[in-house]
Design a protein around this nucleic acid. Structure first.
Lengths: 166, 166
DNA sequence: AGCAGTATCTGCATGTATGCAGATAACCGT
DNA sequence: ACGGTTATCTGCATACATGCAGATACTGCT
């Protein structure tokens, strides 16, 4: 289980796995009727429980103006809502609608059952190990995301164009 | 490791894990300078080694016209290229450029190292189990993706509008 | 050879996400 | 109370992905 060949194999296996999970996320987003920026933002606010518009702008890398529209869309789609910040009335706290998670779960449902089938083939001890991994890997992936986003090459249509761009 | 509370816990852990992986995929796509449809298409062609334009259209759910443009963008971005089908000269085979995978790996690099750190904390036997899971889970996620895409509610701006839509 | 069917590409129109800059409202220190 | 600062929103302009319909090139059958 540790020959050089296996290492290369692991490489491929892992890539394909990440790919499959990522693509499933894409499909989920689309099924939920959300574009990636919206999906990303929704993920952020559900994870944090709520973020101010400005925070959301920073985290998504969008301008505050674009973020306002993003929140509009999220609200219109029924996934999030604006709430007042009791300590600062300028601020807008964007929080997930109570059953936003439920609606997402519904979309992701098929995935869950397919994976559940796979998980069912393991012993309780093995499952425990897997969940231990999930627990530890999630923060690692989040850290990686931060890193990737920081290094992201601005794309066509993104910011940093020589001309006005918009 | 199997009380009802843990089940709920597992639910959350798994959701957050999937979320983290999915978001990392999004970040990778963006870092690669690709939109989600392009990322998805690229994934398909690398996985299959090559697809005809029509096949790609079917698999992505786009029209053939939109697919042509998609291929254009993928080509322009240097990830894919058009090749002639020797058996049918009408056909165009879209295949990944030789080092497309390498460029993607580069983008995903940070993720790999973060996760590698996590994996390093396990024993070889445990790692073997984890990779066994990756191997089995990937097809499950792909199946789930298919299912989700099939059930996908056409979104605003998508097809199935009462009027011309475009 | 001719014709119907098929695969891809192109022209045109549209919806939409986004950036930028200015407007508005609220906070905070003096 | 006032002025500077900060948070969000709105108006305008732009780029772009996509759909649809027609054009073009090729295949396979008769």
């Amino acid at each position: 289980m540790a020959t050089p060949e296996d290492a290369a194999d692991e490489h491929v296996v892992f890539r394909q796995y990440l790919d499959a999970v990522g693509l499933q996320g894409l499909a989920s987003a689309e099924a939920a009727g959300l574009h990636t920026s919206e999906w990303y933002a929704l993920s952020l606010i559900t994870l944090e429980g709520g973020l101010t518009s400005g925070e959301l702008a920073t985290r998504t890398g969008l301008t505050t103006g674009a973020t306002t529209r993003l929140i509009d869309r999220l609200e219109r789609a029924g996934y999030a809502r604006r709430a007042a910040d009791p300590t600062d009335r300028r601020r807008v706290i964007v929080e997930p609608v109570p059953d936003a998670l439920g609606r997402i779960e519904e979309v992701v449902g098929p995935a869950r059952s397919h994976v559940a089938e796979v998980l069912a083939r393991y012993t309780p001890e093995q499952r425990a190990l897997l969940f231990d991994y999930f627990r530890r890997a999630a923060p690692a992936h989040r850290a990686a995301t931060e890193e990737i986003r920081k290094s992201a090459t601005p794309r066509r249509g993104r910011s940093a164009r020589s001309k006005g761009d918009g």
